[in-house]
Amino acid sequence: MSRHCQLTGKKANNSVTICFSHKRHKRLQHVNLQWKRIWWPEGNRFVTLHISTKAIKTLQKKSLSTFAKEAGIDLNKF
């Protein structure tokens, strides 16, 4: 499974590290992903998702079903 948020679709960002001698090295800035078990009231069960911390904060404002509908995700598959 690739490292991306299942709700927002966030994934790693390409970046460059520059040392004191100005050598450049490519690296990835990974998303802060967490496995989260969330109660889904419409399905009357828990859903386990691999989501970013930004998505966890957004879930506190929106409901899970609204957020999944905007992302185009079917929660019955999880």
Rank of each mutant, 00 (worst) to 15 (best):
W35D: 14
K23L: 10
F20W: 10
K69N: 12
H50F: 15
L33P: 15
L64H: 11
V47D: 08
H50T: 02
A71C: 07
I18K: 09
A55P: 01
I38S: 04
D74S: 08
S63C: 08
R45T: 13
Q29Y: 12
F67P: 03
G43H: 05
W40S: 15
K10S: 02
Q29A: 10
L75E: 11
T17L: 07
W40I: 06
V31I: 15
T8P: 02
K26V: 00
L59T: 11
I73F: 07
F67K: 13
V47P: 02
R37V: 12
V16H: 06
R45Y: 05
K10F: 07
I51R: 02
S15G: 09
I56A: 08
K36Q: 14
L28D: 10
V31N: 01
L75G: 08
C19N: 13
Q60Y: 01
N44M: 09
W39M: 07
S21C: 14
G43V: 06
E42Y: 13
W39Q: 03
A68Q: 02
I56H: 07
T58V: 08
Q60V: 00
T8F: 06
T17F: 10
K69G: 07
L59M: 08
K61T: 14
V31T: 12
K61H: 11
Q6C: 07
F78W: 13
C5D: 05
V16K: 09
M1I: 00
A55H: 05
K57W: 00
N76L: 07
L33I: 12
K10D: 03
Q60W: 01
A71S: 13
S15L: 13
H25E: 13
F20H: 14
F67C: 13
W39F: 12
R37Y: 07
N76V: 08
K54A: 15
K57S: 15
S63V: 07
R45L: 03
H4C: 03
G43R: 01
K62C: 10
A55T: 14
F78V: 14
K77S: 08
N44P: 01
K11P: 03
S52Y: 01
K36S: 12
L59D: 10
K26S: 12
K23C: 10
I56K: 11
F46I: 06
S63M: 05
R45S: 10
K61L: 15
F46G: 02
W40R: 10
N32K: 09
K69W: 02
S15W: 09
L7H: 03
E70F: 00
Q34I: 04
W39T: 01
S2M: 08
V47G: 02
Q29P: 02
